[in-house]
Design a protein around this nucleic acid. Structure first.
Lengths: 233, 233
DNA sequence: CGGACTTTTGAAGTAATTCAAGGGGAGTGG
DNA sequence: CCACTCCCCTTGAATTACTTCAAAAGTCCG
């Protein structure tokens, strides 16, 4: 890949958007590349956070495992997004694992390189602040949903969000563009795969979604929206 | 209050720790002060985030209200902590209200002043990154608890955290140093005041806590810890 | 001492989990 | 190409943790 296209790619990301050319140059010259196969770990929970990653192509998920082995999915990461944000802070431990859902290409930087970039170029530091603020907002919304909503609404909100984030228009509706099992949805909503399965079956019957093995297609977003907002559906 | 003591106070906060003298001077010269009485709003949910606050004395809480009127408590803010972090990002809306639990003194800055500080002094920007990273970690932990733990463990974790954050040693145990009702605890744990009341009553019987009207004293932290970690107690 | 909050506790109800069993697709290897 | 195996998904039935409903008893403050 040539330097020019690297710089253009970086310039479009949430971390380097609006940064001066020298910042992009420095970022380009200090980055390293990684390819990970589907179902492979990029980072393990508990590792020292020594690298910050930017996803170029593919899809990752951030998961946390409790002591008794339960998993929860914190979020999915799409192209252009930063992963391993813990490395932005000093002396951090990765709070969750980062797993490739599909074959993925990443670029990364050492914490030292990132701190240098943030120190030298305020625009990068401000982008980092912006990015963390956005993550915080997202997770706060999920906290609220988990605290106040019943399962069906939570599943509805989750699917709507995924469709927004990673939806692909098809003839049958908006298809979530990566494999997503009932178990995965359960781990995002704080419920069990059984409840997710029953809920999706009920929705399938009403034509709101079409789903298959690790596949979800949202057919009637408006209807799902009314379920999510509890306006009776 | 004289300039010297202001600067010393700022130098100890999470936002300005380690910042150069000029940064502290600029911060001091651009700050404004506010006093809020107990049960008064500093910020309302939905307001444009135009100011960043630093709590000097008192106690605040961040709450979010859903469309149907349910409240959840996002966190409590103690002296030296930043509140209204949304103002660190551009064009933000306050995702929650900020309410004084006790009479409080704050200092604040306009978003313009804060962005200027972050742009000019990398140390301030890095502290902001650090601070948001810490918030993110905290809220992620709560998300995990809410997803995977039953109510009793969640209440236990919440009380342990509050005791850590705002505990005062007394003869009877560690007293949470601000008024905290059963309803408040419920809104932090995603449950109802009834369940909290029953749980605390059971713990009181075992001598783990002592509680009164809007008061909680943790008598046997070790025992509560085993409940929180589900190691049988 | 009255009135507004806060807390307690019982009883009924229910959403969702847990337990249990079976069915179906996709990929693999013979 | 078929059979085998491994996942993943579905569905019923039993259980339960928690909420909701209801009423009463404290507790603080003016």
């Amino acid at each position: 890949m040539d330097a020019q296209s690297d710089v253009e790619m970086l310039a479009r990301t949430e971390l380097f958007r609006g940064a001066p050319a020298e910042a992009l140059d420095e970022a380009r010259s200090t980055l390293f590349r990684r390819h990970v196969a589907a179902d492979t770990a990029v980072l393990r929970q508990g590792d020292a956070a020594t690298s910050l990653y930017l996803l170029v192509t593919g899809r990752l998920r951030v998961i946390e495992t409790t002591q008794d082995g339960q998993q929860i999915i914190i979020r999915y990461v799409g192209p252009g997004e930063v992963a391993g944000e813990a490395a932005l802070s000093a002396d951090e431990i990765c709070p969750g694992a980062l797993i490739a859902v599909e074959d993925s290409d990443l670029v990364g930087w050492s914490t030292a390189a990132i701190r240098d970039l943030m120190t030298t170029y305020p625009a990068v530091a401000l982008n980092a602040v912006e990015l963390l603020g956005a993550r915080y907002r997202d997770i706060q919304i999920r906290l609220r949903e988990l605290s106040t909503e019943k399962v069906e609404r939570r599943i509805a909100h989750t699917i709507l969000r995924l469709a927004e984030q990673a939806g692909r228009r098809t003839a049958r509706g908006i298809e979530i563009s990566f494999p997503l099992s009932r178990q995965d949805l359960a781990e995002m909503c704080g419920t069990t795969l059984h409840t997710v399965s029953r809920t999706l079956s009920a929705w399938e019957e009403r034509g709101i979604v079409h789903c298959g093995r690790r596949r979800v297609v949202l057919a009637k977003a408006a209807l799902l929206d009314t379920i999510a907002e509890n306006e009776d559906g």
